[in-house]
């Protein structure tokens, strides 16, 4: 039986935590799949509109999640232009929304970390006999720690954001339900609103631990790279 007033049900806590990991993990993976190539293109190749694209991504970097959430909500509502996708109040909806949110992070950290090494590493590789293509590969592999960092930063932002999870997810929870969308941040917000601050604190600590653990693991990976 669900405890309605603050007593923690660890089964529910586990469900919500796993969902946070799953939903935001997918968001970070998708954002990396799209954002890393875009970041590489933006930093290594000159083409018309490059500066314009870059400035768009830089602007999107600071977009408040509630604005993004509202925007997506209007697009995804059944009578909105993308309503037919059926994404509103679904896990996939949150993932895709968060993916859009963190995409600029991946793009700009990737681009910056490549730009930081590109000139000198590119030339160094050329002096050592690399072809232009090989030199580009070397530049990217030199920027790898920064690229990995962009994915962690993306995950951490996704898992900790509230606006999209709430507007697109709806914080749906049915005990034993198969289509729930409650995640850590929406649960925290709800428990705060309900005055159950102690539950909110426990969930907050779990959220922090998740963020720390992922960052720590990724740091190890980065060292090993």
């Amino acid at each position: 039986m669900v405890s309605l007033f603050g007593d923690l049900d660890w089964g529910i806590v586990a469900e919500i935590t796993l969902r946070s990991l799953k939903v935001s993990g997918l968001a970070a993976i998708l954002a990396s799949t799209i954002g890393i190539p875009v970041g590489v293109l933006l930093s290594l190749y000159n083409f018309t509109g490059r500066e314009f694209l870059k400035s768009i991504f830089n602007t999107l970097l600071g977009i408040p999640t509630v604005v993004m959430g509202l925007f997506l909500y209007l697009l995804l509502a059944p009578k909105g232009p993308f309503g037919f996708l059926g994404l509103l109040y679904t896990e996939m909806g949150i993932s895709l929304g968060q993916m859009l949110l963190v995409l600029p992070i991946v793009v700009s950290i990737t681009a910056t970390s490549i730009e930081q090494v590109s000139e000198e590493i590119y030339e160094l590789a050329l002096t050592l006999g690399a072809s232009r293509a090989q030199a580009v590969v070397k530049v990217i592999s030199e920027a790898l720690p920064g690229i990995v960092l962009s994915s962690i930063a993306a995950f951490n932002r996704a898992v900790a954001e509230l606006g999209i999870a709430l507007m697109i997810g709806g914080n749906v929870f049915v005990y034993g339900g198969l289509a729930n969308t409650r995640v850590l941040t929406t649960a925290i917000q709800m428990h705060v609103a309900r005055g159950e601050i102690d539950v909110a604190i426990v969930l907050g600590l779990i959220l922090l631990s998740v963020v720390f653990a992922i960052s720590w693991i990724m740091n190890l990976v980065k060292k090993w790279l």
Partner: peptide
């Protein structure tokens, strides 16, 4: 001809 030449820069650059 770049394959026949190498250069060591004034400011040394190293790889990871």
């Amino acid at each position: 001809h770049r394959k026949k030449i190498t250069m060591v820069f004034q400011q040394p650059v190293v790889f990871r």
